[in-house]
Simulated assay, not measured.
Amino acid sequence: MTETAFAEALGAFDAALATTTEVEGVWKALQALADVVVGAKLFTIMKVDWATERSGRVYTSHPDEYPVSGTKPMNRTHWFDTIHIQRKPFVANTIKDIADVFPDHETIWQLGCGSVLNWPVFIADQMVGTVNMLHDEHFYTPARVEAAKHLSLAAKAAFLAAEHLARK
């Protein structure tokens, strides 16, 4: 990722947030930025509902395999400890490591993905959700995870914009 590519992608993200009137447009803009910053074959957004201790997918790049519907209980494994307690991104770079945490690992593998980067999004001292990026095995190198820090503020803005649009 060059500085110019990042600046252009960030400008496009900003313009999309300023003009979109649909929640899906917010997430598509974040996905486009993530594609430039880190890269993802599969991109999803999960939102957390702490009152019910459930999470739900609110956006997906693959609606057939990962539809936006329903919720599931919080995944309280070392994944949860990493993203919620330690407030760090969760990275698994092999399908075996993914299988240790996610029961849908076979679907992930069928989509050609063998690594995952889950970026936790915190606002007002509470995790509101995760930005989930999946790609080939060993794709999320330390350099790519470091680059993903550039998504942190944009992810917060996207969650807030989506919440604003959902209230309209």
Rank of each mutant, 00 (worst) to 15 (best):
M127G: 04
I123N: 01
M133W: 00
Y140R: 11
Q31L: 00
I83L: 04
M74S: 06
A18P: 02
Q110N: 14
P73M: 13
A147S: 13
A143R: 09
I123K: 03
V128I: 11
E163I: 00
A157F: 00
N132V: 05
K41G: 10
E24V: 12
M1S: 12
R87C: 00
I85G: 01
V26I: 12
F102D: 11
P73Y: 10
Y59W: 08
A166R: 07
L160A: 13
H78S: 11
V131L: 13
Q86A: 12
F13M: 07
F43E: 07
A51G: 08
P63W: 11
M1P: 03
A92M: 07
A16L: 10
F80E: 13
S115W: 01
L33N: 11
I45R: 02
I85H: 09
P67I: 09
Y59D: 03
F6R: 11
V121Y: 04
E106G: 05
Y59N: 03
L117P: 06
H84N: 13
F159Q: 08
K168H: 12
F159C: 03
A29S: 14
N132D: 11
V131I: 14
H135W: 06
P142D: 15
I83V: 15
D49E: 15
G56V: 00
V131Q: 04
T71S: 15
H84I: 01
A51T: 14
T94K: 01
I108F: 06
A51E: 14
D136G: 02
Y66R: 12
V116S: 09
A155S: 15
L17K: 10
A9H: 07
V58A: 06
T71Q: 14
V38I: 10
F6H: 12
F102P: 00
V38G: 07
L160N: 10
F90N: 01
L33A: 10
L10E: 15
T141S: 15
L134M: 15
A161E: 15
V58H: 07
M46W: 11
A124S: 15
S69A: 14
I108S: 07
K28C: 09
E137A: 15
L111R: 09
L153H: 07
L42W: 04
F13R: 10
A12N: 14
T20P: 08
A154W: 02
A161C: 05
Q86W: 02
W27E: 06
E106H: 10
T2A: 04
S115C: 08
V116K: 02
D104C: 06
I108V: 15
E3W: 06
R76M: 10
P103N: 12
S55K: 08
V23I: 13
T20Q: 03
E146V: 02
K41V: 09
E24R: 13
S61K: 06
E106D: 14
T52W: 01
A166P: 01
F90W: 10
L117W: 03
K168I: 11
T44R: 09
E163M: 08
T71A: 12
V121E: 07
P103K: 11
Y59V: 06
E65Q: 13
R167F: 08
V91K: 03
R76C: 03
A7P: 00
K149D: 12
K88R: 14
M46E: 13
